[in-house]
Design a protein around this nucleic acid. Structure first.
Lengths: 340, 340
DNA sequence: TATTGGATTGCATACGTTTGCAAACAACGA
DNA sequence: TCGTTGTTTGCAAACGTATGCAATCCAATA
């Protein structure tokens, strides 16, 4: 015998007031006298009343739901971000509708449609780029979008990333200062701004030391491509003595391939540096030197700018970049007197 | 200039029919002539009309939203399950509202309240147990619940797990047959059915070989507790030569501690066996022998039984156990002639 | 005491859909 | 031609809330 849902009508009847009064008591910023507030609250707790967010959404047009689109759930970085985002948004009274999608554009299109159906108040895409068409659709519908860990040209779009170019530069300086002779880069997917920016920063950083990368290969953000790239690099006549890998997830594959398959030692034969600093990077099995993306601060910034755009009409999209430090561990030779 | 939302009224006007007709065309199983179907569909695509799921939910009481409650997102097993669940449910036209919670009971209580507010059609809890009170609340509200990777006594509750007792037995036989003399167990959290069942099966399995576990320590499903347990085990006068760990996530910590901190070799000095077979277990750095939980089949079973209870009124909760194989890798000595 | 103005309240409508009901209609055999 | 049956259709009432408007209240001022 399912218990009947209790509505604001029921509360109103019990409290001896009108339904509107009940509504006002539960609507922040509405006017009600202390006397009615008391009566209503008492009746409400007695009946176990809670406002129906769906009905509320119908009226106000605000669902208090945020759509989260995420692609790479096998990369530890994203579950972590998801968890933090979820907690931060829950604390602000929002909830998360998740969509998983391959990064290819066609599924995403359908998803954006469904998100708009549900009248989500905002959208966060983690490591997923939106086409201009989709951006436009969301803008037309008045739904703010924040790209998490992905940038996009043009300024209709909010995004939160780490300072990828700068990060690439830091890694380059670090490896150059470490006395490495032949430094290669297995890059993040060239279809992503993060991948491109890190690669660009890296090349710039080497150039500042009058050096060129030995090679740059697209690792597609997958283990397979990264392993393959590692093999082809090490098969060269002049194999690299250091590899900067576009993210930790690939860096683990690189290390697995170097050590397990090719029998090389890290960092004795080859130094490896990653990007992200996921928890696994700190585990003894990898002990990976890597450039940290500060998840917490990125999440904070994402939530702040998204809620700002939702709740403060007229606030503009912004592109936020967050600096991250290089975390020194055992997978790469550390230059003497390295203080930076 | 946000484009005005197009409603069934607009479509009706354009198609020259009543609003109800439009609704019937978009409601599966409602009656409408081919002529009106055509007219309405044409008008709908012309205007870009899509039914509003929130308004629909108000009437029908069905939101087509599933609440997913998840605790351990740093254990690779759960992001994977989340991804699969999300895909399977999306394919059936459902969507996932995620809630993250620590496993302690108080936050969960609030979450169940919010889930009921949103009139979710069903709830999946991943590795989170629900108190009897919460189970009852959901039952009263007519919301089916499926526990994923966690069991619960009493039969009001659906659950999908792997065959944990059996799995524990298999590992015991394997380690016993491998000629290990002192076999210890770092168990999953004793507050969880999975942890208890695996431990029980393991003890039973050893008993079948007339053996006793050297020791059983609760690893709490955390890396820290598992590392600590490893240290205390290896500090014994008679340290184990094999450790069965309650899940892969802890097993990695155990291996890190054994190899990195204690300078031991795996499996030469100590064999390690895990439980789950997350992708990381197959990576060269760990190469972990482990009992596989077949995520795909567990997800299928979860979705099937949940949707069954949602869509077929009167269908009963069921407890499903799925067998998994032992995956042989390099972290544990393999018995001669092992065929099982 | 009469007047004013602000705070509080109820009435009624709206949000966008589904669905019971009865009217309209089409098809068909008598 | 006329009932009869089964299918389509429109009307109107929900679902549970927020909110503009006008009415009411209350205290404070003149």
């Amino acid at each position: 015998m399912p218990e009947a849902r209790v509505t604001s009508q029921d509360v109103a009847r019990l409290a001896g007031v009108s339904q509107s009064a009940v509504s006002r008591v539960f609507t922040p910023g509405a006017s009600a006298s202390q006397a009615t507030i008391d009566k209503v609250k008492r009746a409400a707790t007695q009946l176990g009343y809670r406002p129906n967010p769906l009905a509320r959404a119908m009226i106000t047009g605000k669902s208090r739901i945020i759509g989260l689109v995420v692609a790479y759930l096998d990369n530890q970085f994203y579950p972590l971000a998801l968890e933090r985002l979820s907690n931060a948004l829950q604390a602000k009274g929002y909830h998360i509708l998740v969509f998983t999608t391959p990064n290819s554009g066609d599924g995403l299109d359908r998803i954006v449609g469904e998100l708009m159906d549900y009248r989500v108040d905002g959208i966060i895409t983690a490591s997923v780029a939106m086409s201009n068409g989709m951006t436009q659709r969301c803008a037309d519908a008045g739904i703010p979008v924040v790209l998490f860990n992905r940038g996009q040209d043009g300024d209709g779009q909010s995004s939160v990333t780490s300072a990828n170019i700068d990060g690439g530069r830091k890694v380059a300086s670090f490896l150059a200062a470490g006395g490495h002779r032949r430094i290669a880069h297995i890059a993040g997917w060239s279809g992503s701004s993060t991948g491109r920016d890190r690669a660009r920063g890296f090349t710039q950083g080497l150039a500042a030391h009058d050096r060129l990368p030995l090679d740059v290969i697209d690792g597609m953000y997958t283990r397979d491509a990264a392993s393959q790239a590692t093999r082809s690099l090490m098969a060269r006549a002049d194999p690299p003595d250091a590899i900067f890998v576009g993210n930790d997830h690939m860096a683990f594959a690189v290390m697995d391939t170097l050590r397990g398959e090719l029998g090389l030692r890290v960092p004795h034969d080859v130094s490896v540096v990653g990007y992200d600093d996921v928890p696994l990077a700190g585990w003894a099995a990898y002990d990976l030197t890597t450039l940290r993306q500060p998840v917490n601060r990125m999440v904070e910034a994402t939530v702040d700018t998204l809620l700002d755009q939702i709740e403060t009409p007229g606030s503009l999209p912004e592109k936020i970049e967050i600096q991250g430090p290089l975390i020194l561990r055992g997978s790469a030779r550390i230059p003497k007197d390295w203080t930076q």
